Simulated scan of single mutants.
Amino acid sequence: MARKEKPHIPQEGSELTPEWFTEVLGEADAQVTAVERTVIGVGIGFLGELYRCALTWEGHTEQPHSVIVKIPAKSEINRGVGEGLGAYEREIVAYRDMSGDLGVTMPKHYYSAMDPDPAPWMMKPVIFLLEKLPLRGVNWLTQQFLKLSSKSPRRYLLVMEDINDARPPQQVEGGSLDDAYQALDVLAGFHATNWMHHVRVQSYDRIWPINQTPKVWQASYLRNRDEFMDRFGELIGPEMVARLEQAQEDLPVIIEPLGTEPWTVLHGDFRLDNLMYRPDGEVVVLDYQLLGYGRPGWDVAYFITTALSPDHREHEEHLLRHYHDALRRAGVTSYGWEQLLADNEATKLLLAHRFVGSLDSIETEMAGQPESFIELLVQRVVGWVR
């Protein structure tokens, strides 16, 4: 018997046709006759392109009438980062293999496909070199690796539930305290479910520790440091400049504890833009491209500092206490309050350092935005550092 040919893996919106949807979602007595595509995510900050596809069906079906399709970004920089980090594969694995087990509400997985990894052996030697080379060598290797990754012909596609009954907060505008407290409850449940989950981490070799390859952070900072300080040094002030310079020198020591026990699986990108709030109080969590593992304080600090402006600093301790109490109620007692405070402070400094190191990619992603907008982001990131 001839082997059935696998469906094509679309990489363009125009390829999301009625025939293709019928092939991957259709049933014996139902087929898709029309597709209305709407672009809902592309460009700034997106490693992938998102399409909402309204499907017209002929015949009775229980299949969805609207879905979200995610494919890799066309931007060379975004594609290189997504491929280099293993983000596209990691997210497909999360939806396909982990949905229902992570302790959070996720969009339903309807279909996914990706080409086999043509060089599954490559990551180990690359990481070895990134750990051994001097910073300038790490900088050169990182840029070459991302350029190579941006040219990858590997195809990825994810079809998932369209969450159309929930409110999407806007991160740029800043969230409310009520949204923040609700999100921290969800985050605590996610962390508790995956607490010291060795099987989860060992079952997929691209869930990496948060403290892996600190030299990449340092090399990126070195590459962007002069331009950042020329443009924003006066804005952030000499004291903050000195803090960032010291963080650059001490970075391996600062980040090392964040990847040690007690650890949990980290979402890696837990921010308002990846949360959807339903009227009944349920929160749907999106985007699993950066799953990793490490101290939970990383996710907590990342969320608070991206969700709220530094004007909310007076509420920071209460937000942290709220999270810690929720974590304890969920059964985790091996992560002390003082540990959370220390990890929170370390993460905020690391995030400010990482912002400097990411200036070149931020500039590319935000081309066309006024300088005042980037200044606002700088002030928000460094404003949380004590």
Rank of each mutant, 00 (worst) to 15 (best):
M1H: 12
H8P: 00
Q11M: 13
W20D: 00
R37A: 05
V39G: 02
I40G: 02
G43T: 08
I44H: 09
I44R: 15
F46S: 00
C53W: 02
A54L: 00
W57E: 02
E58N: 13
Q63Y: 01
K70I: 06
N78S: 14
R79G: 01
G82Y: 12
E83H: 10
I92H: 01
V93K: 03
R96Y: 01
D101N: 15
K108E: 14
K108Y: 01
S112F: 04
P116D: 14
A119F: 13
A119R: 11
P120D: 03
L129G: 12
P134L: 05
L135D: 09
K147L: 13
S149I: 01
L158Y: 03
E161N: 05
I163T: 10
N164W: 02
D165H: 13
G174T: 00
L177S: 08
D178I: 09
Y181I: 05
A192T: 02
H198T: 15
H198S: 12
S203P: 00
Y221C: 09
L222W: 03
N224P: 03
R231L: 10
E234T: 14
L251W: 15
P252G: 10
I255E: 06
L258Y: 06
L258V: 09
F270K: 06
R271S: 03
N274C: 09
D280I: 01
E282Y: 00
V284H: 04
L290Q: 08
G292V: 07
D299C: 08
V300C: 03
L308Q: 06
L308W: 07
H318M: 14
H322T: 12
Y323K: 10
Y335V: 13
G336Q: 11
Q339H: 05
Q339V: 07
A342Y: 07
N344H: 15
L351A: 12
S361Y: 14
E363L: 15
E365L: 11
I374E: 05
E375A: 14
V385I: 13
